[in-house]
Write a protein that binds this DNA or RNA. Structure first.
Lengths: 261, 261
DNA sequence: CGCTAATTTGATTTTCGTCAATGAACGTGG
DNA sequence: CCACGTTCATTGACGAAAATCAAATTAGCG
């Protein structure tokens, strides 16, 4: 999280191209080699670029909004508020993600989008995405496939929150975030900066900040993680993965069902 | 759930067409008037029709599966199992829904699909959907929009399970099911048959069957619902809707961002 | 009619939430 | 550069919602 996204995606088979790579392209072309025309189309989406400092609320739940956002650097989360002041963090967004879900199906935004770290976004009018769907069938199918994968990832979170105890919820969340950061920063790290408060972690896992604190301590005591301020180090990734039965849903997306031509 | 889907969808603006309506068409054309060619394409998906009695497991989590299912009648749920024997019901499926999410992005199925009532499904090979994406841009965009709405509905469930007490969780679930059944059966009913066990309700809301029983009792005591065997009657819909802050996410989906032809 | 599965009931335990106080870290402005 | 305020982490005592366990009753179905 220090030097923001300066390197080429290490897993991306299609990074040798001349012109600067688009954020979406980086992500999508990992699943399917894209044509020049398709890459152009994606780049064409990314014209209104804006940067926000950590903590900024980019759009608020209920705001009328015609825009989507493509994440160019940094990370964010989407959340909803309850009438009693509570909050649920629904998901996190990283490089190449599109915040389509929340503002596409209605005229208003169904969640609040908040910058976790400093970040740069491309603001995309909804109808621009409409043009992609009209002109680029393979991209359409790919967006749909990625959306499906994200829906399954969300289902995993529901299962975690609905049916597991605090240790598994927190452990799963750490692994999920690590997996996604890894796509950005490279496969190296079990160490990462976690600029989230206990309150944030609680709002993501359905726990109170107090109990998240206790839970992190328990994970430390068991030798699964180490902490130093906001730095988290997952000492025993395999053990933790096994302990919480973590499943990676984002690294692979099937495209073999796409029609030719 | 008695006479299965015999009537024309009362809200559907495009039901005067000659040939028998497709299940998907019924749902999609509610959001966007479809062309004849588009309707044909949807009907072309619905060729392998199969019926299953209530309780049947149609596909199991982890099964290799190249198929999706379009629901022609009845209802189902998708669920996952945990290693400790627990289960999380992720969502319910009704007339016109596609179970794309769980088997589209991987070669295997990410959830178990179980018939709640007797039901009829169309089995669709994944690559048939690929052809829709290739040839029918508007349908592609519409499928994406509907998928986004479903993702928000899933987010609502996450919020409900993560951040609200038992009464709200169960109340929300009842209203969600009612809203979806209503799309099938017409706007009439606050009475519906709920062929779910307490265990099922618990697996959907993240509670134990014991506590679901207590919670239903509490809802009865407060005069919000009545029960008679498997028949549920929501006595005070408005009061319950207000009490649990229920939001309807399925009735409307925006299509104004679609690009012109 | 009898068997199985589902619901109901009650007693008890556990996990997690609530509340409150303390302390560390950080940023700001005098 | 230090005082101050704010925010966040930590700690502990206590309470409550829901889980667990076990038994009894009921409903459903062949």
């Amino acid at each position: 999280m220090k030097g923001p996204m300066n390197t080429i995606h290490p897993l991306d088979p299609a990074t040798q191209v001349g012109s600067p790579e688009s954020a979406l392209e980086r992500k999508l072309s990992y699943h399917l080699p894209l044509t020049f025309s398709e890459k152009d189309a994606l780049r064409w989406l990314e014209r209104r670029e804006r940067s926000y400092p950590a903590g900024t609320v980019i759009v608020e739940e209920g705001d009328p909004s015609d825009n989507l956002y493509i994440i160019a650097s940094g990370w964010l989360h989407g959340s909803t508020r309850l009438e009693d002041g509570g909050r649920q963090i629904l998901r996190f967004y990283f490089l190449g993600d599109i915040t389509a879900t929340f503002s596409l199906a209605w005229g208003y935004c169904a969640a609040t989008l908040t910058a976790v770290s400093d970040c740069t976004l491309f603001e995309v009018p909804r109808h621009a995405l409409g043009r992609i769907f009209r002109d680029y069938p393979r991209l359409s199918a790919l967006l749909y496939a990625v959306g499906s994968a994200e829906q399954v990832a969300l289902s995993d979170r529901l299962t975690s929150v609905g049916r597991t105890d605090a240790i598994k919820r927190v452990g799963t969340l750490l692994l999920q975030i690590r997996t996604q950061l890894q796509v950005v920063d490279g496969p190296a790290g079990s160490v990462f900066e976690l600029p989230l408060t206990l309150q944030d972690l609680g709002d993501a896992t359905g726990l109170t900040k107090t109990h998240v604190g206790r839970t992190l301590r328990a994970l430390e005591r068991d030798g699964l993680i180490e902490r130093d301020g906001k730095i988290i180090r997952i000492v025993a990734i395999d053990a933790l993965t096994e302990r919480v039965r973590f499943k990676d849903r984002v690294t692979h997306v099937a495209t073999d069902w796409f029609a030719e031509g």
